[in-house]
């Protein structure tokens, strides 16, 4: 994206801050920065790195993902669906003896219970993950930054969103400056960006 493709930059008067972005060139810098932001009590912020960094979860103060619970509930639901489907059909709706098995013989449909448990769990995992990541979404203001493209290459980033209750243009910038970034960038948009959670 060349700079000529940023028509909004010609109307600076209407723009509002949506995001502060700090760039780091080493993993230890970004981990320490994350610890500082965590300790400062921010809630709407994130780190962006080209690969997973050990210890980042605790540096960011992340709690366990809720995805496990979603998968568990969906798995139990899948199991219940398989069991009740088989029992209803084979024992009540249309009892029929197949291969000498009495109607409603539980082992007969174990593959069905198993498959439905797995299928529902997998749906829970995929769609639950998308939901928790607030996906799909078409765009995010962070992509306004050309610098940010290095997040999938060789640079590490911390971003703090303006909708964070603790966000203050000056003090947040100072906080980020104190973590030895290689650059700090303010991203602005025409309309105020609303956090969706």
């Amino acid at each position: 994206m060349s700079s000529s493709m940023h028509p909004r930059s010609e109307r600076p008067a209407t723009r509002q801050p949506v995001l502060l972005l700090a760039e780091y060139s080493t993993t230890s810098h970004v981990v320490h920065a994350a610890e500082k932001v965590r300790d400062a009590g921010y809630s709407h912020w994130d780190t962006h790195t080209p690969f997973p960094i050990h210890g980042m979860d605790s540096a960011m103060g992340l709690k366990d993902s809720r995805i496990g619970w979603i998968v568990l509930v969906m798995g139990v639901l899948g199991l219940a669906t398989g069991l009740s489907m088989y029992l209803y059909m084979n024992e009540f709706n249309y009892p029929i003896v197949v291969g000498g098995k009495p109607p409603g013989a539980l082992p007969a449909a174990v593959p069905v219970y198993f498959e439905l448990t797995v299928l529902f769990s997998a749906f829970g995992a995929v769609f639950g993950m998308l939901h928790l990541n607030r996906l799909p979404r078409h765009n995010h203001p962070i992509f306004e930054s050309d610098r940010f493209r290095a997040a999938s290459d060789d640079k590490f980033f911390v971003s703090i969103e303006a909708c964070d209750p603790k966000f203050n243009l000056e003090s947040t910038r100072n906080l980020l400056e104190s973590t030895h970034p290689s650059a700090v960038e303010l991203i602005e948009e025409k309309e105020a960006h609303s956090c969706s959670h």
Binding site: G99, G100, K101, P107, A108, V110
Partner: peptide, 12 residues
């Protein structure tokens, strides 16, 4: 374990 049981039980 279940597969072993299942095949035997089903074929009867």
């Amino acid at each position: 374990t279940f597969s072993q049981f299942f095949l035997v039980w089903y074929s009867n």
